[in-house]
Design a protein around this nucleic acid. Structure first.
Lengths: 226, 226
DNA sequence: TCCTGTGAAAGGTTTCACAGCT
DNA sequence: AGCTGTGAAACCTTTCACAGGA
């Protein structure tokens, strides 16, 4: 078994979170037939500093050429490999409301290393409907759709009230990676990876900064009343 | 000028990012008529450690009671105030594809400190359509919808190819907070706050960890050397 | 000369553990 | 006793600045 430079284990979380951005920027360069890119240029299109980019890439191995830059195709491959995107991952979407349908018909999956394999909903009026080339299935099918041993990513796009129950069933069925779009925190056992995407949260963070900008003058009045 | 405990500016970014989660957990407690909560309980429902919660809240001021816990209503108010949610922020959504429509009809806005005030799309066949109580307007209206001086949050839900152009127009019109759902990085001038939400990125991060799980056995060889 | 890769320094975040108040 | 608020320690991330290879 060869020990090559990329075998360096333990890529920092902050780095992993940025690799998809680099991959996307590299994709745009590939589309423009650019063959080679410097850390400065790539960092700029990904919206980070060049020092950060170089440090991030150094955790994957030494894939650049000093004095020249990075080979776009080779770096694309190395990042894809680091992220585990050399084969497609099956994705199962639960909840076919407005958001679930938007996610299901989002084309970006196929090219990005994922394939939606099943759509589920509790509502009998939605079950059976065709979305692109998939048919919405009832919740009772959930357990039969997850092949134990074969990894699969579960996406929760249900109302907040059902999210925990759906998560529990996904976990029980053997899903160990969950992406939660429901507007609630869900609890998962240790060992299950859960990420949350939430519109309200993002808007509230923006509101905070917007408020900081316009100054705390209204706040000062309130402080007095304490 | 009064200097009380809450006057401490500079709430750490990591804390700001978690405040919405605490607010949501408090909302659930309020709905259950719970009047008081300990850091342990609140932290658990928000999915963080109690030490982290207490440290976070300490940046806002001392709103707990030692030996007792936090008053749910009062803490809700203080966090809302810290985030700038004591009044509603106007939100403008650009791009009425599947995702834009899902965002527009997402009810969670109103109760969370935001109000969608305008929907825009480039496609003439979408312009004029009614979504809830708003009518989709043409892109030419963008500049007239942003009142200079009055803060407003712009949401980009267009295809990747139009995102940068839309961002440029929003910024030129005076929008200084942007939430980008398009699958591309966009550049904004210094002083404009931009946050990005992206499905592919989240799935790719999950894929990385899923791969680590199943591929971890090769790592054992390296451990031996340590 | 050019640009990558990387130690070292600086900065930020989380956890610990306990002082201090009810 | 019970629980918050907080220094200090541990840990993680970013930035700096330059050694080193093309």
């Amino acid at each position: 078994m060869s020990v090559d430079q990329a075998a360096k284990r333990e890529i920092p979380d902050a780095t992993v979170a940025r690799l998809p951005g680099y991959l996307r920027a590299l994709g745009q360069l590939t589309a423009q037939d650019v063959l080679s890119v410097s850390s400065e240029e790539l960092a700029h299109s990904a919206g980070v500093s060049s020092a950060k980019l170089r440090k991030d890439l150094s955790h994957l191995g030494s894939y650049g050429v000093r004095g020249v830059g990075y080979d776009v195709a080779h770096l694309t491959y190395q990042i894809s490999r680091a992220l585990g995107l050399t084969h497609d991952w099956p994705v199962l979407i639960v909840g076919m409301g407005n958001l679930g349908r938007a996610l299901a018909s989002y084309g970006g999956f196929a090219t990005k290393g994922f394939k939606v394999v099943a759509l589920l909903d509790r509502d009998p009026t939605l079950v059976g409907q065709q979305l692109d080339d998939l048919r919405v299935q009832p919740m009772t099918e959930l357990e039969s759709l997850v092949t134990p041993g074969e990894a699969c990513i579960g996406v929760i796009a249900t109302p907040a009230g059902s999210a925990q129950e759906v998560a529990d069933r996904l976990v029980a069925a053997g899903v160990s990676s969950i992406l939660n779009f429901a507007a609630t925190a869900i609890q998962v056992p240790e060992g299950v990876h859960m990420r949350k995407v939430d519109l309200s949260t993002e808007l509230q963070i923006l509101a905070f900064h917007e408020q900081q900008r316009s100054g705390g003058m209204t706040d000062d009045l309130l402080e007095g009343a304490g």
